[in-house]
Amino acid sequence: MNFFVLLFLIIGLVFFTGGAVGIIRMPDFYSRLHPAGKLDTLGILAMVLGFALFNLKTFSISELLLSIKMLLIVFFVFLSSPTATHSIVDAGIRAGLRHWTKEDKR
């Protein structure tokens, strides 16, 4: 049981690391949204799955409800993260930002 919890947590940390490094390394704002919006979402999914498993060690009704509440967080994040990403992209498009292409590379 503990092994799976550790596995999920480490997978989540790897995805979070990818998101943080991607935000630093990517060349422009549109391509920065790719790691920021989505690697973080999958990181939250993996880590919360690990927490829910860890919480279910001694099985009881209240702990089951807690785990369901954690999955509610995942559900909400999966709904809200594309919406937030889309609203940021929309603001960028309306402000007239050009996107980075290969010719911009020196």
């Binding site: 549109y30 790719h34 919006g37 989505k38 594309p82 990403t85 889309h86």
Partner: peptide, 9 residues
């Protein structure tokens, strides 16, 4: 949007 590599504008 959720599938990485693509964002709906």
């Amino acid at each position: 949007t959720l599938t990485p590599g693509t964002i709906t504008i």
